[in-house]
C-alpha cells in the first residue's frame, strides 16, 4: 500500500520480555517487539492467543509479571508516563458510558480534566464526531447507536485526547464488511492526517493486510513472526500459515 508519510507526532513503543500468568496459566510467555512512531502495527492471532491481554498491558490496565514496556523510553507503569503521553484505547465493545449521551461520552476527557469551557467542548465534540462521519448523534444515548456507530463514537472519544498512540481492540469484530471497511479507512485516515502511532489487535485478515505497515502474529502467548504484510504472508511456519490460510472445505 502506497501512502504518503505524515510529519509524525506519534510515539515509539518497545516491549521487552513481557510475561503474564492468570491462576497459574501463562498467557504471555515472553513478548518482544518494537513499534515505530507513526506506524500502523497490527497484532494478529487466533482467539485466546493473548492479544487482548497484551493490549491491556500496553495501555497500563494490567501489570506484567516480568518484562517492560517503554513509551519513547519511559516506563509505562510510571504514573508520570500516563500524564506525559496522550494514549487512547478503542475498546472492542466501544465501552461508551451508557448513562451519558454520545456527546458527553466524547467530551468526557475534556470535561473531567476541565481543559476547555463547555462551549468549546461542544464545538470540539461536534468536530470529532464529524471527523468519523457521525452527525446528529450528539444527544443520542449509546444504546440508540448501531455497533459500527458505537465504534466510530469510541474513535471520536479517543481523538478528543489528541492522541500520540491509539490502540484498537478488535475494531471490526461484529461489523458487516462495509462498516469494517469504514473503520479500516478511519484508521488509515488518522495516521495520514495526524501521524498517530496505531496498534491494532485483530483476527480480521482483511483489515490487517489492508491497513498494516507491519504485522506481528501471536500464537500460544509468543510472537511467531513480525514483518511487512508481504513478509508475514510468505513466512513459512505451520502455525502462521494455518491461521492466515484458514478456509472452508466444501466437497463438490
Amino acid at each position: 500500500m502506497n501512502r504518503s508519510r505524515p510529519s509524525t507526532q506519534g510515539v515509539d513503543l518497545i516491549v521487552r520480555g513481557l510475561r503474564k500468568s492468570f491462576v497459574g496459566q501463562e498467557v504471555l510467555k515472553g513478548i518482544d517487539f518494537a513499534v515505530r512512531p507513526g506506524e500502523i502495527f497490527v497484532i494478529m492471532g487466533p482467539s485466546g492467543s493473548g492479544k487482548s491481554v497484551l493490549l491491556k498491558h500496553l495501555i497500563g490496565l494490567e501489570t506484567p509479571d516480568a518484562g517492560e514496556i517503554l513509551v519513547n523510553g519511559d516506563h509505562i507503569s510510571k504514573p508520570e508516563t500516563a500524564a506525559k503521553y496522550r494514549m487512547a484505547l478503542v475498546f472492542q465493545s466501544g465501552a461508551l458510558l451508557n448513562s451519558l449521551t454520545v456527546g458527553e461520552n466524547v467530551g468526557l476527557y475534556l470535561a473531567e480534566h476541565q481543559l476547555k469551557s463547555p462551549e468549546e467542548i461542544e464545538r470540539i465534540v461536534g468536530e470529532k464526531l464529524a471527523d468519523v462521519g457521525l452527525n446528529d448523534v450528539l444527544h443520542k444515548m449509546p444504546s440508540e447507536l448501531s455497533g459500527g456507530m458505537k465504534k466510530r463514537a469510541a474513535i471520536a472519544r479517543a481523538l478528543v485526547i489528541d492522541p500520540q498512540l491509539i490502540l484498537y481492540d478488535e475494531p471490526t469484530s461484529e461489523l458487516d464488511p462495509v462498516s469494517a471497511v469504514v473503520i479500516g479507512n478511519e484508521i488509515l485516515d488518522l495516521q495520514r492526517r495526524i501521524g498517530v502511532t496505531s496498534i491494532v489487535v485483530s483476527h480480521d485478515r482483511d483489515l490487517a493486510f489492508g491497513v498494516a505497515d507491519r504485522i506481528a502474529v501471536i500464537g500460544e502467548g509468543r510472537i511467531l513472526t513480525i514483518g511487512t504484510p508481504e513478509e508475514v504472508k510468505n513466512f513459512q511456519d505451520p502455525l502462521v500459515q494455518s491461521f492466515l490460510n484458514a478456509d472452508f472445505h466444501r466437497e463438490k
Partner: peptide
C-alpha cells in the same frame, strides 16, 4: 458492577479519570 463488566471503568482509566 455493570460499568466494570462492560469495560466502562477501564475506559475511564484509559482517559486518566
Amino acid at each position: 458492577g455493570s460499568m466494570a463488566v462492560y469495560q466502562e471503568v477501564d475506559a475511564l482509566r484509559t482517559m486518566n479519570i
